[in-house]
Amino acid sequence: MKVLIIEDNQELARNIRDFLGREGYICASCETLEEAKEKLSLFKYDCILLDIGLPDGNGIGLLTLIRTEHKDSNVLIISAKNALDDKIIGLEKGADDYITKPFHLAELHARIRAVYRRKNLGGASIVEFNEISLNTDTFEARINGTLLDMTPKEFDLLLYFLVNKNRVLSRQAIAAHLWGDYTDNLANFDFVYQHVKNLRRKISGAGGMDYISTVYGLGYKFNSHKQE
């Protein structure tokens, strides 16, 4: 997947580039509206990460251009301002999703994948890995074809793991993904533990391999290379 990162902060852009690069994404980044316009006129991207507050103008203006000339590209707005207006205007002008700083890189990745699935894969919204298969439309999870009895949060969690395979997911990132911000619920870590435990039990119970492992002190990891 080709990704264009329009972000004026180089460090943040490098974080994103590093993280997505390991997924095999081809990332380009630029810092200003002008550079972005130049890049967009020359190349085609699957996904565009657009920071709204750019040194030479508001990134929202770029959306119109992207929508007319890059219809197929997914646009994800990155904003420091969690302003509702920005969100609504951004989505109205054709952005596909909106993420607020500071975000977890795994969360950004999950959002990119979700938008990609929605737009580019049409009806085939199936995420598969070995014996595991998730249908993101019907929220059905199957192991070797057997339907798993899962709660919505467990489904969400498994999808998050599958998208971020072989990555250490911190408890904070998981909690933020499952419950969002603003809940003032730092004690959610117990719940994260419970959810992961239940998920592992359900997968093993249906005969799936226990790919999820605990990473000491940090969180959890979906280990795709795990052998019996």
Binding site: T100, K101, H104, G217
Partner: peptide, 29 residues
């Protein structure tokens, strides 16, 4: 609020990346 979010996002991203590198248990803590 605007200016603080970006550095926070950078730190968070760096930590996310650091977690993936080869680290010892005490570093993990």
């Amino acid at each position: 609020s605007h200016e603080l979010q970006t550095p926070t996002a950078i730190i968070r991203g760096k930590l996310d990346l650091l977690m993936e590198s080869d680290i010892r248990d005490e570093q993990a803590v």
